[in-house]
């Protein structure tokens, strides 16, 4: 077999695939954060915890009710989304008139409470979640072996990300959303119920985190800490992509996942910090982010 830049192709493509998987989760999670930030101006620190709850709901559905993966794929985002609606209605909505920092503090506190509660009941060791039968096995692509489930995660995440992008950038509902992000008072003065839109946006954004949690359950274990392990990188992705930019979140998420994978091949020592190095450089050169607009 030939070598690429002195690296066996199996290693290179294996790491790239791993990068693409991580990138899919970065993209899904940072997309939700971007949608929420755009509309609510809140940095949703509870995002990682809600991703974790998405995975736990899938696990609980399976172990308590015997409902499998495909049920979880529908039900878990719905349940997490409804939880988001309740949080927004009862708590977050009271903070919009205050500094953005209060929203950040509230969601950070909520994240600690949610993670603490799950740690209390389920410990930190992690629960296994089986890959659904239909997605077991893999394909030999010649240059590498692709497990079916991982291929599915990448495709599902891409479809959801670009579906969301299309809905926001190309539909009438998306036009309301973009307009309300820019000037909520005027959109309200056209007869659109903006507070309801804000609640729905938060619910949708966290439902994406719940979906990511279900997709992640068979790959990573279902553990109370799975969210906080991931969320710091996701925040870096959002900053690099540009706060509130939908396309920025998707492209940056996937791109940085791949970059991390490549770094693991060529200079493994740097793989944990490469995202933050990129963030520092982007902030120096283009403070609004790669896809962000200066406000």
């Amino acid at each position: 077999m030939f070598d690429l830049l002195g690296v066996p192709p199996q290693v290179l493509f294996g790491q790239l695939l791993l990068g693409l998987i991580n990138g899919s989760f970065y993209a899904l999670l940072s997309l939700g954060l971007a949608v929420i930030f755009g509309m609510l101006n809140v940095i949703n620190f509870a995002h990682g915890a809600l991703y974790m709850i998405g995975a736990f709901v899938a696990w609980l559905l399976l172990t308590k009710l015997g409902l499998g993966y495909w049920w979880a794929l529908g039900l878990s985002p719905l349940i997490v989304g409804l939880l988001g609606v309740v949080l927004e209605k009862t708590m977050l909505s009271r903070l919009y008139k205050l500094d953005h920092l209060y929203g950040l503090l509230l969601t950070f506190g909520l994240a600690l409470i949610m993670e603490g509660a799950f740690r209390h009941f389920y410990g930190v060791s992690g629960q296994p979640y089986p890959i659904p039968d239909a997605l077991k096995g893999g394909q030999n692509l010649g240059f590498m072996f692709l497990p079916n489930y991982r291929g599915w995660v990448v495709v599902a995440s891409l479809v959801v990300c670009f579906g969301t992008w299309f809905a926001i950038e190309r539909t009438r509902l998306g036009a309301y959303l973009r307009a309300a992000t820019e000037n909520p008072v005027l959109v309200q003065a056209f007869g659109i119920n903006v507070p309801v839109m804000i609640t729905a946006t938060y619910g949708f954004g966290v439902a994406l985190a719940g979906l990511a949690g279900v997709l992640a359950a068979p790959i990573y274990q279902v553990s109370p800490l799975m969210g906080s392990n991931l969320i710091i990188v996701v925040f870096a992705v959002v900053v690099i992509g540009g706060m509130g930019s939908i396309l920025g979140a998707i492209v940056t998420g996937l791109g940085l996942g791949l970059l991390e994978g490549l770094t693991k091949v060529f200079y493994p020592e740097a793989s944990n910090i490469v995202v933050f190095v990129v963030m520092a450089i982007v902030l120096l050169i283009k403070p609004a982010g790669l896809f962000g607009r200066e406000r």
């Binding site: 036009a175 309301y176 973009r178 992000t181 820019e182 000037n183 056209f190 659109i192």
Partner: peptide
């Protein structure tokens, strides 16, 4: 006028 909307989208925005 909304900068993130095209002229058509601006025109069609108010219900």
């Amino acid at each position: 006028i909304f900068s993130s909307l095209s002229v058509d989208e601006n025109l069609m925005l108010p219900p």
